[in-house]
Design a protein around this nucleic acid. Sequence first.
DNA 1: TTCAAAGGGGACTTGATTGGTCCTATTTGG
DNA 2: CCAAATAGGACCAATCAAGTCCCCTTTGAA
Lengths: 156, 156
Amino acid sequence: MLRLSKLTDYAVVVMARLALDGAGPAGHVQTAPGLASATGIAEPTVAKVLKMLGSAGLVEGVRGARGGYRLTRPLPSVPLSQVIVAVDGPIALTACVDGGVGSCEAEGICAVRGRWDPVNDAIRKALSGITVADLAGPAHCPAVRATASLAPMLAE
Amino acid sequence: MLRLSKLTDYAVVVMARLALDGAGPAGHVQTAPGLASATGIAEPTVAKVLKMLGSAGLVEGVRGARGGYRLTRPLPSVPLSQVIVAVDGPIALTACVDGGVGSCEAEGICAVRGRWDPVNDAIRKALSGITVADLAGPAHCPAVRATASLAPMLAE
DNA sequence: TTCAAAGGGGACTTGATTGGTCCTATTTGG
DNA sequence: CCAAATAGGACCAATCAAGTCCCCTTTGAA
């Protein structure tokens, strides 16, 4: 199966929750513990995801007491591919990341490989066309649906 | 990183090698040990891949002495998605395969998830548009390039 | 000025997944 | 009747990721 890390899933959920308080300097910050209890994800895990999203510039962390996180951009303008790259690293199906022609140390083994570049490109393209808002819409699972007024906000 | 199993990679290489002897009832069969030495992949692994491809109907096995494998269809008519499904199972990014609304046993945990269906669809679509022939073209790695007259055949 | 709350950045452990091998039928040509 | 080859699992080991925990820095408030 084509696998995507769970952390990416968490990232989308956390970002959806962050969207409730707006994006940019005007938005209110939410703490990691607060997001954890709101989403049901364990607190250390939420913190980890937020750090990764912060490094990628998708969320902004405010340090110190009364600190927290907020989105830097509204969800509809965040392509899913950026979240995946932030959490999972470069989007590529094989270890041989495309472009690195001389990067095959063990050439005898590398001899085996096909050329996956067109596939990587196709997938990247597909993921760029989807925004986080597309995923964060009204969920079919009970508890997320219970977080209520999420959908209208994401429609923005 | 978005990961695809190595076996899928092997499958593409093996199918490319099989294409040298044609497809369908008219094609000559190649043995698993022969394919192994031709591709540089370990023999048991080649056998495993061929079994999987056989179950999926992508290759055809001929049993008994003088047996072997051959393609059932020419590579340009085999979408990559079929190979991935054959080797890796259903294409879905998360454990919650789409469609199964009631399949979330642990609802408290499932509450966490977003809706990945649009993503799965997009990826499936992207992979369906690429054929195995697109991947099996002239490789940039030495040993594969050494397998010579592969490219013209795949251009068919 | 001191304390507590919160983010920042890793390091580490455990568990699941996968890659790879092997063993045993079954088939079939010589 | 034997040898060669596929068919189909069962099994072991190594890799990778999820999750947790640690210590440090920052900063508002008492």
